[in-house]
Amino acid sequence: MPGVTDRFSIPFPCQGDAINPAVFATWTNGIESAMAQVDTMRGLALHRPAASVTFPNALSLPQGVATNVTFGSELFDTDNMVDLAANNDRITIRTAGVYMVEANLCLQQGPVTTYTSGRNAVTVNGTVSLARKHDDISVASTISGILATVLAPGDILRLQYLWTGTGGPASLACQYARLSARMVCPSP
C-alpha cells in the first residue's frame, strides 16, 4: 500500500500494485478506523459528561452554619460522577473541563422570628465558586452559571446553604434541593 490519504491515513494501492482480497481488507479497515474516530467525537459532542441529584435526605439546616446539602436520588449521570451510597453530598468530576452548574433549594417555611438572609452556593472542593444571596424565605433560590475555574478529575461539587436570622428556630428544614452539572467544553 504505497499511498495513504491526508487526514485519516486511509491506505490505497497505486497503479501497478497487485490487487487481491488483502488489499481490499486493508483499505476497508482504514475506512473503518476513520469512521471510528468520527464516532468517538460524535459521542463526546452529543453526550457530554453530566449529572444531577435531587431531594434532600431529611436535611435540617442550622442557623448561621454553612451546611452541605445531602441528596437521596440521582436524576441522571453520564460520567460516573455520582455515588450516593458512598457520598450523598457531592458530584465528583471525572472529565477535565469547564462546567455549567445549577443549584436549586427551597426551604420548608416555618415559624421564623426574623429571617435575615440565605445564601445558596455551589462549592468546588469546599470553596464557594458560584453563589446568590437573598432575603426572602418564601422564594426558592436558584442559581445557574459556568463555574469560575476549569475543573479537574476528582474535583468535588457541593450545594451549600447558609441562612441567618434571629429569634429562632435554631434550624430550618430543607423542602427540596437539586444540584446539576454539565460540561460546557473540555480543557484545551
Partner: peptide, 20 residues
Amino acid sequence: VALFLQAEAERVDTLLGTQL
C-alpha cells in the same frame, strides 16, 4: 481498481474530515 480505491479513499477522507 487501484484508481477507484484511491479516489474512494480520498473522497471518504474529505467527507469524514468535514464531519469530524
